[in-house]
Simulated assay, not measured.
Amino acid sequence: MTPSVSASLAVDLRVQPVDGVLDRVERSFQVRLERDTVVRKRRSLGARTDRDTWVRVERRLLDKIGGQGWNGTECVARLEGIAQPEWHGCIVWRDADEPVMWRADETELLPGSPVGTAVLSKDPKLSDEWWQAFNSSLNALAAQHTARVATPDTVTIAQSIVTESIRSVFPGDFDTKVEEWVPAHADLNWANMTAPAFCLFDWEDWGNAPRGLDSASLWGSSLAVPALADRLWQERRCDFESRDGKLMTLFVCSKILGPHAHPEDPRLEPARRMTKQVVAELQTG
């Protein structure tokens, strides 16, 4: 039996009882989850199994499951040239008490530990080999073709959302129209990649997005570590110097500098400096 909570309340799986969910996953996959390895996030869970695989479980409201479904991990498994865990299978069920669906995907184990939390506060000291694998995977992803549309934070990205987000923080005389849409991970942060061996995981939101979304998102997660943010900018220079990459830089910074900005966020000042430069370039370009 899955846990029942009023759909009007925000459910956080970091604190919500989840034993019933994990029990159901074990029965369906005919596997034992090693409960001492369980990783709990706001809307997902993960655990190692007794057959040396990993199971990720996600809870999603029905109105957050669009026409393309929410089978990102399954769909990305067919793509070549991307360092990702091999996908084995999945189970999906509808909650008996809420307008919610649950999905569990079983994959091979990650080749390393997550680089860190979503937003880093210290340099992870990544190797040149790591950066090469990172670039190779992002370039291979952007070269794919898909009908999927990215859903960062479970919201389908669209031109209207890009324009609204940018204009809400950066008014100015420049065009916000995106020219190039390419496949993107759409949740690229330091908690979704491994080191010392590079691997990219948590693919539930991938799909077409403005060019540069992934690079800008990761850059925004790196601003508290200037050397890391600078290295990322150099590695993904082709994205950041493109017109769409500049728009995505503003898009990401609108979330950092917007009305919900924390006054002590160390990313505020570097974000302000960069956005001033980017706005000027867009206005004169």
Results as ranks from 00 to 15, higher is better:
2 T>N: 15
10 A>M: 13
10 A>S: 12
11 V>A: 05
13 L>R: 13
13 L>M: 03
16 Q>C: 14
17 P>Y: 00
17 P>V: 02
18 V>N: 08
24 R>K: 10
25 V>S: 02
26 E>W: 09
26 E>K: 00
31 V>F: 05
31 V>K: 01
32 R>A: 14
33 L>S: 07
35 R>F: 01
40 R>K: 07
41 K>D: 15
46 G>H: 05
47 A>D: 08
49 T>S: 10
51 R>M: 10
52 D>W: 09
55 V>G: 07
56 R>Q: 12
57 V>L: 06
58 E>K: 13
58 E>F: 06
59 R>P: 10
61 L>M: 13
63 D>V: 12
68 Q>D: 15
70 W>N: 15
74 E>N: 08
75 C>E: 15
81 G>C: 03
81 G>P: 10
82 I>S: 10
84 Q>V: 02
84 Q>A: 14
84 Q>F: 03
92 V>E: 13
92 V>C: 10
97 D>I: 02
97 D>Y: 12
97 D>L: 12
101 M>W: 12
101 M>G: 12
104 A>F: 03
112 G>A: 04
113 S>Y: 12
113 S>D: 15
117 T>A: 11
120 L>C: 13
122 K>I: 13
126 L>Y: 04
130 W>K: 08
130 W>N: 04
132 Q>M: 07
133 A>M: 02
133 A>C: 08
137 S>H: 06
137 S>C: 02
138 L>Y: 03
138 L>F: 12
139 N>Y: 09
140 A>N: 07
141 L>T: 05
141 L>D: 01
144 Q>V: 08
145 H>C: 14
145 H>G: 13
145 H>Y: 06
147 A>W: 11
149 V>T: 12
151 T>P: 04
154 T>A: 13
155 V>C: 07
156 T>Q: 02
156 T>R: 12
160 S>L: 11
161 I>W: 12
164 E>S: 00
165 S>D: 09
169 V>F: 07
170 F>L: 01
173 D>T: 13
174 F>T: 00
175 D>K: 01
175 D>I: 05
179 E>D: 15
180 E>P: 07
181 W>A: 00
187 D>E: 10
188 L>P: 09
188 L>C: 04
190 W>K: 09
191 A>D: 01
192 N>C: 00
194 T>R: 03
194 T>W: 07
196 P>V: 08
198 F>W: 11
204 E>K: 07
206 W>G: 02
207 G>L: 01
208 N>Y: 05
209 A>V: 01
209 A>E: 06
211 R>H: 05
214 D>H: 00
216 A>L: 01
218 L>V: 08
223 L>S: 00
227 A>P: 09
228 L>G: 01
230 D>R: 02
231 R>P: 10
234 Q>E: 15
236 R>V: 03
238 C>H: 15
244 D>V: 09
245 G>I: 04
246 K>L: 05
247 L>Q: 02
251 F>C: 05
251 F>D: 09
254 S>I: 06
254 S>P: 04
256 I>T: 06
257 L>A: 05
257 L>F: 03
260 H>P: 08
264 E>F: 14
266 P>S: 08
268 L>R: 09
271 A>D: 02
271 A>P: 02
272 R>I: 02
276 K>E: 06
278 V>Q: 07
279 V>I: 02
285 G>R: 06
